[in-house]
Design a protein around this nucleic acid. Structure first.
Lengths: 343, 343
DNA sequence: GTGAAAGCGCTAACAC
DNA sequence: GTGTTAGCGCTTTCAC
């Protein structure tokens, strides 16, 4: 009797790219063997290794990491969330993070949440959907809802640039309260008595400012004049802020700024107005950006080991992803006041 | 007769996360229907839509984009390659690119190639392996090998920040030669005659410097003094460069810098030495960073529409990814000299 | 050391 | 409008 005609072939033409299958066929081995030759070369014979390497070269095969990630449940993708990438503060951290991850075969996905924390939920969804092996949160305040989701999805999380009392998972940061106190103490020790503070309108900067003011009070100093400017901070805001501070009280002798850019603005405005720094007003910045040391006068500022933060965060994530246990989940990276000319 | 015992169950426990399958079961529909309810809501009945949305909410389902990407051949991932993210020049472009992509449901993957172009090949492999829907090259010189691979893999590519004669695919940039000429013309028109140039050691900056020097020659001016500094440029290098320029010839009356940071350095050193800007020496920067307008003196510089570059690049990629044809593949975004006080 | 089978979680292609 | 089926390209599990 007649054979039934073969059912219609539904074809889903692939991408057309070379696959592991092709490589395996060319090498005369099973796909899984080719896979092993590439990922765990010790498990295959030299003969097979040679043939597979050869086939890879001849075909120009590039493994599809999407497929690999799906099968192995490891995407080798790490997400980083920053408020905004401009505003050079987090830049250094993102850079070292990218580098440290790349060295270990991981790739960085970048997300910007904005300072408002508005787009945060949509962003989180986009991130979690990719099943990254880790998420690095940098200078971000996460909504309660966001926290819950992060906890729920079980992806390793590293919070950075802060020392929160109740970390979601892992953390590498420093105490903003300590920074505020330290700067106040430093200025006091230098004989300054009437403080002003210029601070960006973000949670961490405000915490530093708060601590700065409290420390001044504790030292018995007159009330600190505070100017809050919108984040991200700019040179212009710094200039404007000094104008405002001088308007409020002409006799301040020290200004603490929540960023080096603000400090540069304050110093610029001071020079324009013939106010001498540091003789009449001492200026302290925050961040120790690359240019701080070479300004005139050179800027006294708070140095944060931004590169180390990125490296440590990468270490945390990779250790977790590769099943190593992370003994100490919280790292206080500290900070230091770099004494230069401006204060 | 006895049934053959069922073959041993090989189980591959999944990630344990909620899958589309779970949502579909809960909603009482087939998986594909649930998929449609989420991706193309118009194609399902209101009844189904309601039930599926409900199930999603109840389960906290987050679609696995790895799986989706594998199945649909569209990763909704875009890779950006920059020499280094620090060095605020490309920052603005990366930022607007990230934003523009996020708005359209795409995610950015970041790669740093370093200025040397050394790690470029490994990076390219890591990128291509993710099968991104597009690659944005920013301020990078690609090896011939790299070019070949990019062409071969068929992924849409946008080169930015330059106007190369033979683009790989799409391009949004401007002419560095024109910039160099324009700056020389500008300074000449301002009555300056003895030029110095401080330039970072990267391909584009050097092209600007070259054109600047040639234009000066064409204008019948004396030989331009050139100082080349390693990339990325810094304020310090700017200061050092002015020292060097003055050492070589005390009578220059204009300095063109390959970045605003260098220009700030030159101006800082000038002030320290009592050289008046712009009276004795005019200074021109490049980039028009946020702070340029608020320096004292405010910095005359070349403005590049970095944000527009990012947006256009995103548009290019998304159009291609979604099958729309891109009529004009090359966009010259132009530039402008922003006249301020320093020159 | 090597291989066959069975998915990972989703969507394209085709029926009804 | 909804469902069935067959993959996307890889890796895990188990068997030899």
């Amino acid at each position: 009797m007649a054979e039934a005609i073969s059912p219609p072939r539904r074809t889903r033409r692939g991408s057309g790219a070379v696959t592991l299958h092709d490589v395996a066929r060319l090498a005369g081995v099973a796909p899984i063997t080719a896979s092993r030759a590439l990922r765990t070369p010790d498990q295959v014979s030299d003969e097979v290794l040679r043939k597979v390497s050869d086939a890879v070269l001849r075909t120009g095969y590039v493994p599809n990491l999407l497929a690999g990630g799906l099968a192995s449940m490891r995407s080798r993708l790490v997400a980083a969330v920053v408020p905004t990438i401009s505003g050079p503060v987090f830049l250094e951290t993102v850079q070292s993070l990218t580098e440290a991850l790349a060295e270990r075969g991981y790739q960085l996905m970048l997300g910007q949440s904005g300072y408002s924390g508005k787009r945060e939920d949509a962003l989180l969804e986009a991130i979690i959907g990719r099943r990254p092996d880790g998420i690095v949160l940098t200078g971000i305040m996460h909504s309660a809802e966001g926290r819950r989701r992060l906890l729920a999805c079980g992806i390793p999380v590293v919070e950075t640039w802060d020392l929160t009392p109740t970390p979601i998972d892992m953390l590498v940061g420093f105490s903003h309260v300590e920074v505020g106190r330290a700067v106040a103490g430093y200025l006091h020790a230098k004989g300054r008595r009437r403080f002003g503070v210029v601070t960006g309108d973000d949670e961490r900067a405000k915490r530093r400012s708060q601590a700065f003011q409290e420390a001044a009070r504790a030292l018995g100093l007159p009330e600190v004049q505070e100017v809050v400017v919108p984040a991200p901070t700019t040179l212009r805001r710094g200039r404007e802020s000094l104008v405002e501070l001088l308007r409020r009280s002409g006799d301040i002798d020290a200004v603490s700024c929540s960023s080096d850019l603000l400090a540069l603005g304050v110093m610029t405005e001071a020079r324009v107005r013939g106010v001498r720094v540091p003789e009449q007003i001492a200026v302290v910045g925050f961040g120790d950006l690359e240019f701080a040391a070479d300004l005139d006068p050179s800027l006294t500022t708070v140095h944060i080991k931004a590169t180390a933060i990125g490296r440590r965060a990468a270490q945390f994530i990779v250790d977790r992803a590769e099943g190593r246990d992370v003994a100490e989940r919280v790292i206080d990276i500290g900070f230091s006041i770099v004494e230069r000319t401006s204060a």
